[in-house]
Design a protein around this nucleic acid. Structure first.
Lengths: 190, 190
DNA sequence: ATACTATACGGAGGTGGCCTCCGGTTGCAA
DNA sequence: TTGCAACCGGAGGCCACCTCCGTATAGTAT
């Protein structure tokens, strides 16, 4: 373990540049095609060889993780901001909606990334744990305020949001997303 | 449209036999690998050439649909049986649990099949519609009994069940499935 | 400025799965 | 038994994945 680790430290200028260009292309590709991105196309769009792409991101998983990292960081930040909102339940609900919006944007990448969340040590794993903990504070506040059932855990909510997004992904009409969300919210209330 | 349709009627004996052998192999493969089955492997296990497989099931989608068809039929049947159960809400809950169990068994095939549910005319589409309608009766009974909110639709419930299964698929622990299910049930109550 | 080398680039090529196509085979009816 | 429509099988083209290594160059030492 820990053999071909991608160096994060100081790199040659061209390497750093390529890394960023590839990542940008990857994000664009993920945004419109979801999880089933075509790696060689990303390399082409980034204007680099396929070998260069694979050096920076040794595995398909690595690219998806990198593309999702920012979202995880932002979701954590949003949670921390909401932690001081006046209405604990509303804050939680707002954050859960964000989860869905981000998930919808990231499309079915979710499955791939969800998997990564559980493999130790990854950068994305740490980011996801942080995000989850920040969300857990929101949940706890709502529970302490007596507005949410005590037997609900944060993972339940994250997975339910994720599930709603995934289940509606292939559907022609997105019109039932809100009702489904409402059901979940009603279900966690005391 | 409607060109290379797979004939359902009388076929030559060897063709009929191969069809069944392939389908059996496909079901076995789907049961353990989910949606990302390897078609050539199925053909190999069935002891037929790849060409034969493709004649009987023109597309990957067709195989998944065929493998899932039985489940849809059975779920419909179960719903019809439960329609005469004494407690409408309990009947609905039981049926939704079945949805999850079947989905869990069918694994991530769900996404592929969910898609098929919305393409017109397919055999699986008809089966799914029938199943959904049978489930809708269960829902309506529970609503008429005043036990379930009126703004809930059957698709919401099916998708939520599907979502729970998918979202938990990659997770190492399945222990949160029941709590998530409970949240949904609590959420649809009046 | 020049030379040197660790670092990085790029794409050819091997692998594997998808799907088509067609020459050969066989069930079945007459 | 014969004939043919139905059926079989797998070779082969395609595409994406991923590795490997010869070439190029940024950064540094002189």
């Amino acid at each position: 373990m820990g053999e071909t680790v991608v160096r994060k430290g100081p790199r040659r200028a061209d390497a750093q540049h390529n890394y960023e260009v590839i990542l940008a292309a990857a994000r664009a590709a993920v945004a419109e095609r979801g999880g089933d991105i075509v790696l060689e196309e990303i390399a082409r769009n980034a204007g680099v060889g396929i070998g260069t792409l694979y050096r920076h991101f040794p595995t398909r998983q690595a690219i998806l993780e990198a593309a999702f990292l920012d979202e995880a960081l932002e979701l954590r930040q949003r949670a921390e901001v909401l932690q001081s909102a006046p209405m604990p339940l509303d804050a939680l609900i707002d954050w859960l909606r964000l989860q869905m919006d981000f998930g919808a944007h990231g499309r079915s990448m979710g499955a791939a990334v969800m998997n990564a969340k559980h493999t130790e040590g990854t950068e994305i794993q740490i980011a996801c744990v942080d995000m989850r903990e920040a969300g857990a504070v929101l949940l706890r506040r709502a529970q302490d305020a007596g507005e949410v059932r005590l037997d609900v855990e944060i993972v339940d909510l994250l997975r339910l949001m994720h599930g709603i997004v995934i289940a509606n992904e292939q559907a022609p009409d997105q019109s039932r997303v809100d009702p489904m969300f409402d059901v979940v919210i009603a279900g966690i209330r005391t």
